[in-house]
Design a protein around this nucleic acid. Structure first.
Length: 379
DNA sequence: AACTCGGGGTG
DNA sequence: CACCCAGAGTT
């Protein structure tokens, strides 16, 4: 708190949350956005359903990645009723490749709630919106302001960086004190109307101008209001995040072939890629350079009672999941004998395994590595 | 406050 | 490669 006690002999009666007047700040933001905003598919309407879908897809996911997913998803499921009535497998298939698949399952669950609790009408109040699964403070504020014109603040990656620079905040942003300050700022600067446009404009400034590296302060509509720029410290703010230590892991994926069929399993609710399908995978000793694969066939028998012979190496896929760097060795196997035995996960839920024609893999929602393998088989 | 959850874009 | 992304939910 000693921070804000830095007593500048304030030149005005009512202190502005930004350098200069808040009215000028609003004018600059608005004029810039009119000139420079991108043409994005979710900006074509204020339909709360479409705003909602876009906001969920955009969580931790870049605009360029989301565009095509948004078009496909809303074309296939144009209303909240269509989504509520859809099979979860269809929703996951539309989400395949986007990552954070819990978003898709919570989206589906929320659609059912909107139908059952709110008679199919998207709730207008921030608290009601935030009570839906998968919707936190940011997403609730975004939907409330953009779709309903409510005077609600937002705070996400772009605006955290922008606001930190605007107020010259030189502490780590992840602390609760920093978050509290930034949310307060987000609220303090809200205009009295056109709040949805204003919030989107600030995200756009953060995304296009006030970038993490090389912020373009010369072209920034807000440099006159920016404390960091005033102090020449825009490259030091915000402070860099603590970098995470990656853990290398080696796994093997098995393409077990039985005529034109392959063996796949559905990931359980308690594991990664819940609800998605994947080829059987097993962990290998770390730094395994494909030397010791002798135990794999036994692991498969142990897991589902199917015996198969290890064949050639197909490909190696490297990918990352949170703190893990996974090297995935992909090998073909040929089925020899055995019938799939029913599985039960540690959570008591059934574990579904099945044989599926290679030509039918397109129907299933697959993990990204599973899809890459599947494409390899059908070519 | 730390951790989990993906995958791709970018320089 | 490293860093980043219109976060939410759990521990």
């Amino acid at each position: 708190m000693a921070k804000s006690a830095r007593s500048q002999p304030s030149k005005k009666e009512t202190s502005s949350p930004v350098r200069g007047s808040l009215a000028a700040f609003h004018a600059h933001v608005s004029a810039w956005f009119e000139q420079h905003q991108r043409d994005l598919p979710w900006r074509k309407s204020q339909d709360p359903y479409r705003v909602w879908i876009s906001e969920i897809m955009l969580q931790q996911t870049q605009v360029a990645t989301v565009k095509e997913y948004f078009r496909r998803f809303t074309a296939q499921l144009p209303t909240v009723h269509d989504l509520a009535d859809a099979e979860e497998q269809e929703v996951l298939r539309l989400w395949e490749g986007l990552g954070y698949y819990r978003r898709a399952r919570q989206l589906h669950a929320a659609a059912k709630e909107i139908v059952s609790r709110f008679e199919g009408k998207f709730p207008r109040e921030v608290d009601e919106i935030q009570s839906l699964p998968g919707i936190g403070r940011y997403t609730a504020g975004a939907i409330a302001s953009i779709a309903f014109g409510q005077r609600a603040p937002i705070l996400e990656a772009n605006t955290q960086r922008l606001y930190a620079r605007l107020i010259g905040w030189d502490e780590t942003l992840t602390t609760s004190a920093s978050q509290k300050r930034l949310w307060q700022f987000a609220e303090d600067i809200l205009p009295s109307d056109n709040v949805g446009i204003f919030n989107q404009a600030l995200m756009e400034v953060g995304s296009l101008v006030c970038t993490p590296k090389n912020p373009d302060c010369q072209q920034c509509p807000l440099s006159a209001h920016c404390e960091a720029y005033h102090q020449g410290r825009q490259v030091e703010i915000p402070r860099p995040k603590k970098k995470i230590e990656f853990i290398p892991i080696t796994e093997i994926a098995l393409v077990v072939r039985k005529k034109n069929q392959v063996l796949v399993r559905q990931c359980g609710q308690d594991e990664r890629w819940a609800g998605l399908w994947d080829f059987p995978r097993f962990a290998l000793p770390t730094d395994n350079d494909s030397s010791d694969l002798s135990g794999v066939a036994e692991q498969l028998v142990e897991a589902v009672g199917v015996r198969a012979d290890l064949q050639q190496h197909l490909t190696t896929i490297k990918h990352g999941v949170t703190k893990y760097r996974i090297t995935l060795l992909c090998h073909e196997m040929t089925y020899r004998q055995g019938r799939l035995k029913p599985q039960t996960g540690p959570d008591g839920q059934p574990r579904v395994w099945k044989w599926i024609e290679v030509s039918q893999l397109g129907e299933l929602p697959l993990s990204t590595t599973g899809r890459k393998l599947g494409r390899l088989l059908s070519t």
